[in-house]
Design a protein around this nucleic acid. Sequence first.
RNA 1: GCCCCCAUCGUCUAACGGUCAGGACACCACUCUUUCAAGGUGGGAACAGGAGUUCGAUUCUCCUUGGGGGCACCA
Length: 430
Amino acid sequence: MTNVRVRFAPSPTGYLHVGGARTALFNWLYARRAGGKFLLRIEDTDKARSTDEHTKVILDGLTWLGLDWDEEPIFQGARVKRHQEVADKLLAEKRAYTEEGAIRLRVPPGEIAWDDAVHGRISFRGEDIKDFVILRADRSPLYNFAVVVDDIDMTISHVIRGDDHISNTPKQIVVYRALNAALPMFGHVPMIHGMDGKKLSKREGAAAVGDYQVKGILPDAMRNFLALLGWSPGGDREILSMKELVSLFSLEGILKKPAIFDLTKLEWMNGQYLSLASAEELYPLIAPQLEQLGVNGNKEAVLRAVAAVKTRSRTTIDVARQVAVRLDAKQVVFDEKAKKEIGKDPAGYRSSLEASLAELRTADWTPEALEKTLRALADKQGVAAGKVFQPIRIALTGGTVSEPVNELLFVVGKEAALERLQAASRQSPG
RNA sequence: GCCCCCAUCGUCUAACGGUCAGGACACCACUCUUUCAAGGUGGGAACAGGAGUUCGAUUCUCCUUGGGGGCACCA
């Protein structure tokens, strides 16, 4: 048993920012590593901006990333009575005073320092900090006060949060002191910046984890990528499972400098996870997207197509698009490169397809047999194998990139493939 | 303006006084191949600057510069 209790305390604003998601992940990893509790507190005191729907977005985002929590989430808005009670107590003890109806907490002079888990010792001076309001005239509590009251009541042992809270920490320490409560361990993790070096904004594509879900990123990849932004287990490890992350995580491994969010590397990592995943695992993610594209194929066919294309894909959207092309001729769109290839020699393109068709009609429809058949055809005609393969690839997919053509034929299926080749050999596309 | 934090390839990072400063993404070249956004091989690419401490600093200290964050009766 440990008494490690960490919390993630987002304010529900309608989306889970990647920075917040990473903070949640670090808290979660720390809790799980230590065998402690991971708790949630929703900072919903700003009623104008917070709704149940907004809270749900946060919870869904965490769930998507594979993060679970241990007790029912606490809602800060439901605790105002408690905040008022504590503020009144401080007032009675003369640690706070009234000013224009509001209650203001005294900040005594002297050093206010703590040993930060990621930065080491950080020190402020009480003289630099003004007495601050903890309860408004309408008796609603303020953030820096409410968080501490809640953290104390929840017996939070470690407060791991973004760097932007460093300058809130001395104020919060003043509250802990006024309440005679022991300080938790504070750890301030650096921010995540966009490619411009500034705070990550929606302008650079996506800033919320839900956006990446929509973009076709796998949760495992997202989690792996996020974990490595501002944290390192040391050494060269890159692809790390949830289990490995838990066993390797430590506060000491958190870097001090802000990290820049590199979408390209996220997509690369996603590609790695796509290659690793089985078609069966990917199926539930691909099927809805196919439906959206208006493609219906039986599961067997979809699985075969997924297996064929996932290695060459970076997102599940890529996968779905390519699967769609293989299952439904209507999804075939000729891209620029393909048109250019055909344009070089339209007659040759068609005659090559006709020759292949003649052989394929009677061929055994297995990848091995198909390759033999087509290579034999190329030999017979005295041309490079590519002359035979490439027109088929273009006719079948509308593009110049795919898995090996024999596998492609197999995935599309005999009947459909022959139809498409037949059609392509008769007319050159747009 | 005041307070605080930070500083290794373009980006993510390794290094915890002695390394030809390593890996990954991206990029380039070559290679494999029937194409590639796949595989393989190789290449260019960094210790912000200046003082110290030390036999020896990327590593420790200080300064400068640069970047970031915060200075609410927001969270």
